[in-house]
C-alpha cells in the first residue's frame, strides 16, 4: 500500500512541483496519473521510490516512511519496486538477458555482482521474466537490435525479475508508435491482473489512461484536482484537470483536433481503441 500524507516537493530552484498531496493506493490497483506536462506527474511518481525525495509530508510504502530511508534500507525498498521509463533505459550494447539479470543485482553483494556471479535461480528468474513478456527467443540478442516495443518489454521483464509488489511507469508508451503502445499497455494490464502487482503510471494520452487504469489521479500545477474511478471521468472533470480543452496529441491515435465532447465519456474511447485493434489483426 502506498500512502501520501500532505506531500510537497520544492526543487532547489524554488519551483513548487507538488503541494499538499493526500492519496492512498491499495495493493493490486492500476492507477494512472494524468495532467499537463509540468504538472508534477513525474515528481509524484518518483517520490514513491525516493528517486526524487519529497521535501515535506510523508510517503508511506507498506507503512514505511520512504523519506526517512537511507542507504541499504532505501535500496531494499527500491528492489521491491520496479520502474519503467519513457526511454526504456536499457544498456544498449548489452544482451537482453544481461539487462534483465541486472534487475537482480540489489539482491546480492557488491563483490559478487562485480564479477557477474548470480545463483542459478536468478538466471532462471530472468529468463522466466522474458518468457512472461513473450520475448524469450530474443534473450541473447543485443538490446539495441530490438524494436521500441520489444525494448520496453525488456524493461518490463527487468522490473518483473525484481519480484516487485509495485511497478512505477514514467510515461511508458510516450516513445512508442500507436499500435505498439496498445500491446505494451495490454502487457501492463496483464501483469496487473495475473500477478497482482500494483501499477502506477504517468500517462500522456488521456484515453489510454481511462481505458487501462481503474483509477485516475489528476494533477494540476502540483495539486491533486481529481481522484476517482476512471469510468467517472467526464468533460467537466477533464477541463478541471487540464484547465483547457484537450489537444490532439493528448488523445491516442488522434491527429485532428477533437471536440471536448468527443473525449469525455467512455463510448468515445471504445471507438478509438477499436480502430488500431482492427489493424493489428491484419
Amino acid at each position: 500500500m502506498i500512502k501520501f500524507v500532505d506531500v510537497g516537493k520544492k526543487y532547489p530552484n524554488g519551483f513548487q512541483a507538488l503541494e499538499h498531496i493526500n492519496l492512498e493506493i491499495k495493493d493490486g490497483e492500476f492507477v494512472a496519473i494524468i495532467g499537463l506536462s509540468g504538472a508534477g506527474k513525474s515528481t509524484l511518481l518518483r517520490t514513491i521510490n525516493k528517486m526524487n525525495a519529497a521535501t515535506s509530508g510523508q510517503v508511506l510504502v507498506n507503512g514505511k516512511d520512504v523519506n526517512k530511508l537511507e542507504g541499504k534500507e532505501l535500496r531494499e525498498l527500491r528492489r521491491g519496486i520496479g520502474m519503467i521509463f519513457q526511454s526504456f533505459n536499457l544498456v544498449k550494447r548489452a544482451s537482453v538477458y544481461k539487462n534483465v539479470l541486472a534487475g537482480r543485482v540489489a539482491y546480492h553483494s557488491t563483490f559478487k555482482t562485480l564479477f557477474g556471479i548470480f545463483p542459478e535461480e536468478d538466471k532462471i528468474m530472468a529468463l522466466e521474466a522474458l518468457e512472461k513478456m513473450g520475448i524469450l527467443d530474443k534473450a541473447y540478442e543485443r538490446a539495441d537490435k530490438l524494436s521500441g516495443g520489444q525494448q520496453q518489454r525488456v524493461a518490463l521483464a527487468r522490473a518483473l525479475a525484481q519480484n516487485p509488489q509495485i511497478i512505477l511507469a514514467d510515461e511508458p508508451v510516450a516513445s512508442l508508435d500507436p499500435i505498439t503502445t496498445l500491446t505494451v499497455m495490454d502487457d501492463f494490464k496483464r501483469i496487473n491482473k495475473e500477478y497482482g502487482i500494483t501499477i502506477v503510471a504517468n500517462m500522456h494520452h488521456v484515453d489510454l489512461a481511462v481505458k487501462y487504469a481503474e483509477r485516475i489521479i489528476g494533477l494540476q500545477a502540483g495539486k491533486l484536482v481529481y481522484d476517482g474511478p476512471s469510468d467517472a471521468i467526464d468533460e467537466a472533470k477533464l477541463i478541471q484537470i487540464y484547465g483547457r480543452s484537450l489537444h490532439a496529441d493528448e488523445i491516442h491515435g488522434r491527429v485532428d483536433t477533437p471536440k471536448i465532447s468527443d473525449i469525455a465519456g467512455t463510448k468515445v474511447f471504445e471507438k478509438h481503441s477499436e480502430a488500431p485493434k482492427a489493424e493489428s489483426k491484419k
Partner: peptide
C-alpha cells in the same frame, strides 16, 4: 546516457553496482 544508471538505482542497486 545516464538512463540505465538511473534504472539500476531504481532497482535498488548501489552506486558501484
Amino acid at each position: 546516457d545516464m538512463g540505465p544508471f538511473e534504472a539500476l538505482q531504481s532497482c535498488g542497486a548501489n552506486k558501484t553496482q
